[in-house]
């Protein structure tokens, strides 16, 4: 038994660590390449008396931002507070709520479809927000 474990560990290290180092190298090269290809610019200085500027958040905040337009004022708390908070709490309690001991995705239909649905919706709203 102990022998078996040891063999698996050697598999992980250094073999896996080597993969990790290669991945790290690729990512660093990619980041530097993007950074050189797309240098930074600056916009116009902030002007509180300007009325032509359309605010746009970073793409990863696009989903709640997009939903602001969909929900009318009385239900606005849904995208602004309730949605993000509910997502956060859902993620936090996930390991305690999901008692299903199965690890394989095919045997966790409920969890997989819940998460899949959430991810798809988020991607959908993000894309709609960017296109709008």
């Amino acid at each position: 038994m102990a022998e078996k474990n040891d063999r698996k560990e050697t598999l992980f290290y250094p073999d896996f660590m080597f993969k990790e180092a290669i991945a790290a190298l690729i990512v660093v090269i990619a980041v530097v390449a993007i950074s050189l290809a797309l240098p930074m610019k600056v916009g116009d200085p902030a002007d509180p008396s300007d009325s032509s500027f359309k605010p746009k958040p970073e793409w990863y905040f696009m989903a709640p931002f997009y939903l602001l337009k969909v929900f009318s004022s009385s239900f606005e708390v849904i995208p602004t507070v309730i949605g993000p908070l509910a997502t956060f709490i859902f993620l936090l309690i996930l390991p305690f709520a999901d008692k299903n001991p199965e690890m394989h995705p095919r045997k966790r239909k409920l969890a997989m479809s819940l998460m899949g649905g959430g991810v798809l919706l988020t991607i959908l709203f993000t894309v709609l927000g960017i296109l709008a």
Partner: peptide, 29 residues
């Protein structure tokens, strides 16, 4: 400090509105 206001003359009176949208603070046109 800068601020945007809409003003209009109503006879003798001046009518002034803040341009700040009461929703999430953008300036209205």
């Amino acid at each position: 400090v800068k601020q945007l206001v809409y003003v209009k003359l109503n006879g003798e009176e001046v009518f002034a509105l803040s341009a700040t949208c009461t929703h999430l603070g953008c300036n209205v046109n």
